[in-house]
């Protein structure tokens, strides 16, 4: 069974880059260019992971994360922040809002897929002692 991924990213070039890499790696990639659309699609397709840009129009990545975590059916889906926000606290902020992982842009094409899979397998990034559930996807 092909694993479904959802990418929420407003920059078409970056969207294309990630989609390309992940498709080659054997994923079924769905995309949304803003938060509300992303949340709607997440409900519909129930991906095994969501790659989320933080700087988005209208609704930023932190808000999207909190909204996704509040939806019963998809609250277990790991969210990985992929962002060029690189100021102090950006990573912490993303993890605090409920993200499982954090990948800094610009992404390294050699390691990106590996990194993403690591976070998906971990499910929750820093919290220890929690049962390591495997993905439903």
């Amino acid at each position: 069974m092909i694993k479904k991924l959802l990418i929420i990213e407003d920059n078409p070039e970056n969207m294309y880059l990630m989609r390309y890499m992940l498709t080659i790696s054997g994923y079924e990639v769905h995309s949304a260019e803003n938060g509300p659309l992303g949340i709607q699609m997440a409900r519909e397709i129930c991906p095994c992971a969501i790659l989320l840009d933080i700087q988005l129009p209208e609704m930023d990545g932190y808000e999207v994360t909190r909204a996704l975590k509040n939806i019963q059916e998809i609250s277990h889906v790991p969210i990985i922040a992929v962002t060029s926000y690189a100021m102090v606290g950006d990573k912490e902020k993303a993890l605090a809002s409920g993200a499982s992982g954090y990948i800094e842009k610009p992404i390294n094409p050699d390691t990106f897929v590996e990194e993403m899979e690591y976070y998906i397998s971990k499910k929750r990034y820093p919290v220890e002692g929690e049962p390591d559930e495997s993905s439903d996807c």
Partner: peptide
């Protein structure tokens, strides 16, 4: 500077990403 660095990283993401892909002969 922080904003600029962020704004600069976004296009760099594509440049570095696609260059890497092509050098890896993925396409």
């Amino acid at each position: 500077l922080a904003t600029m660095s962020h704004e600069l990283r976004t296009p760099l993401n594509s440049i570095i990403g696609f260059t890497g892909l092509m050098l890896n002969e993925l396409p």
